[in-house]
Amino acid sequence: MIKFINLKKEIPYTIFREKYEEAHRKGQKNIEAVAISSYDCKKKEVESRFVNLKFVDDGSFIFFSNYKSPKSLAFESHNQISALLYWDSINIQIRMKSKISKTSLHFNKNYFKGRSLKKNALAISSHQSSYIESYEGVQQNFSKALNSSNLSECPEYWGGFSFVPYYFEFWEGHKSRLNKRDAYEKVDDAWNHHVLQP
Rank of each mutant, 00 (worst) to 15 (best):
170 F>K: 08
155 P>K: 02
152 S>M: 10
157 Y>R: 01
113 K>M: 10
93 Q>S: 08
108 N>H: 04
113 K>T: 00
110 N>V: 10
100 I>G: 03
160 G>Q: 11
67 Y>A: 05
91 N>E: 09
181 R>L: 15
112 F>C: 04
96 M>V: 14
125 S>Q: 03
159 G>Y: 04
164 V>N: 10
123 A>H: 09
111 Y>R: 04
120 N>T: 06
118 K>N: 09
107 F>H: 10
156 E>A: 02
106 H>T: 15
115 R>T: 07
81 I>S: 04
170 F>Q: 06
134 S>T: 15
173 G>H: 04
153 E>I: 15
152 S>N: 13
72 S>D: 10
118 K>W: 01
130 S>P: 00
158 W>H: 01
133 E>I: 13
81 I>Q: 02
71 K>A: 13
170 F>R: 09
179 N>Y: 06
68 K>N: 15
93 Q>E: 10
115 R>I: 07
121 A>G: 08
127 H>K: 13
109 K>Y: 03
165 P>M: 03
70 P>T: 11
80 Q>I: 00
82 S>P: 00
167 Y>N: 06
121 A>C: 04
187 V>H: 15
77 S>T: 11
74 A>Q: 15
134 S>F: 12
174 H>A: 12
89 S>T: 14
131 Y>L: 12
176 S>C: 02
117 L>C: 04
90 I>G: 02
67 Y>H: 15
65 S>W: 08
82 S>D: 12
166 Y>I: 12
171 W>C: 11
155 P>S: 01
158 W>G: 00
166 Y>V: 11
176 S>F: 03
127 H>D: 05
140 Q>Y: 08
71 K>S: 08
159 G>C: 03
84 L>D: 03
70 P>W: 13
135 Y>W: 09
164 V>G: 02
146 L>W: 03
84 L>P: 00
104 S>D: 08
91 N>P: 01
171 W>G: 06
109 K>S: 13
187 V>N: 14
108 N>M: 07
165 P>H: 03
131 Y>I: 11
151 L>D: 05
130 S>H: 06
91 N>R: 11
138 V>Y: 13
134 S>I: 12
141 N>S: 11
97 K>S: 08
67 Y>V: 10
79 N>E: 14
108 N>E: 07
172 E>P: 01
72 S>W: 08
182 D>G: 00
122 L>V: 04
75 F>G: 08
128 Q>K: 05
96 M>I: 14
76 E>C: 12
121 A>R: 07
140 Q>I: 12
121 A>S: 11
92 I>G: 02
66 N>S: 15
144 K>N: 11
166 Y>C: 10
95 R>V: 04
65 S>I: 13
123 A>D: 13
114 G>H: 06
87 W>G: 01
152 S>Q: 14
183 A>P: 02
140 Q>L: 12
186 K>T: 05
111 Y>W: 08
169 E>M: 11
158 W>P: 00
173 G>I: 08
80 Q>N: 05
155 P>V: 00
178 L>P: 01
89 S>A: 13
108 N>G: 04
132 I>W: 00
149 S>P: 01
160 G>D: 13
167 Y>H: 09
111 Y>Q: 06
70 P>G: 09
126 S>V: 00
75 F>S: 02
187 V>T: 15
126 S>M: 04
148 S>C: 05
130 S>D: 06
186 K>A: 14
93 Q>D: 09
178 L>D: 01
119 K>E: 12
76 E>P: 07
154 C>Y: 02
112 F>H: 05
148 S>I: 07
81 I>W: 05
